[in-house]
Design a protein around this nucleic acid. Sequence first.
DNA 1: TCTGGGGTCCTAGGACCC
DNA 2: TCTGGGGTCCTAGGACCC
Length: 418
Amino acid sequence: MFALVDCNNFYASCERVFNPNLQGKPIAILSNNDGCVISRSDEAKALNLPMGAPIFKWEAFCKANNIAVLSSNYPLYGDMSSRVMKILEQFTPDVEVYSIDEAFVEFKGFEYVDFNNYGDQIRSRILKWTGIPTCVGIAPTKALSKIANKIARKFPKETSGVYVIDSEEKRLKALNWIPLEAVWGIGRGLQKQLKAKGCKKAVDFVNLSDDWVRKNFGSTGFKLKKELEGIPQLELDETTTKRAIATTRSFDYTYDDINYIKERISTFASSCAEKLRKQNSSCYVIYVTLSSDRHKKGLEQHRGSIVVNLPYPTNSSLVISNEAVKVVDSIFKKGVKYKRAGVIVSGLVPTDNFQLNMFEKEDPKHQPLMKSIDKLNTKYGDYKIKIASQDLQRTWKMRQERLSPRYTTNIRDIIVVK
DNA sequence: TCTGGGGTCCTAGGACCC
DNA sequence: TCTGGGGTCCTAGGACCC
């Protein structure tokens, strides 16, 4: 059996743990740059504050309804997340961290366990030790455990936050209940085609013929169908090293100055390099993107990107930054006002075990240099050491006007108990 | 003025091999 | 009239997820 353990309104719940004034109150958490709403408490949902609402359009609404609006505090959420995951590992060794607020777990050799009871224990331990409320869905496949979780979330009174699909009857009941668009793996594209075929609920999708599904939705759609039939197709994936790493940002304003763009690309590239070093990977491929403001209809729109293939894998900030900045000239269009830029690295290989190139290799001084930079930045914080193509004056201009303290990761922000 | 960011997997088609 | 057949690997882009 698989379980999907999902934290309820995770970001909003994290804020509540350390600020009891927020209990029972509507809360909205904003995206980077205080852009749009990305997490809401149940109370805020009840007020119909939509997901993704740009806050500048909803400011008055929030004020009128007394909604607490906060900047996102990723150091806090990341730390709370790892606490939750560690607790899960006490219940089974097989844990797949699927996102910051949810995990799949597999129960191998748990034939004699009462899953309802076990789910209860998981929920109450996480709640007691971290203060984060969760829901648990348990079923024979990952896709079904997702649905079981949705049922637990939707019917808190009847389920007490735990729902187990352990019979054919319950499976069919669940498939008859869940609307197509709420099924994991059915997005806008598939939904449109399925609606055209007259499907409304998950059960209608499962009743289509195998051949049709495979032909039209490929192997992914076919696997999903089998999963919903109760035949497992997806394994637990416990790998934690990423296959791609990205740093992309919207700017505070639009910019048509190429030097400004180059500075940003250099900074994003070093950020990617740092993330690479953290997971002990190097990359073969760098992808650089620029785009204008898609919300400004009157202005000239441009989205451009370039892929850089490297002769040898690296995680040196110097190499990645240089290569990324070099291609900005060929993407950049004069006169376009740019609003977003990004660097994505892929083709990742383990740093201590990669194929050497016969003719080219990295400057051997880079590795020890990077190690020193990382050490200094960890010790003194705030990116004290940068590379010269970055703006040395600039700290980090991301707008975070309503940030809560980093209660669990910064000693200065620790809560004082009287 | 202000509209997020970071991932995974699959597939078609091109380039190449014998 | 008729112009082989069978493969592998890579990549961009799409669809999906949170």
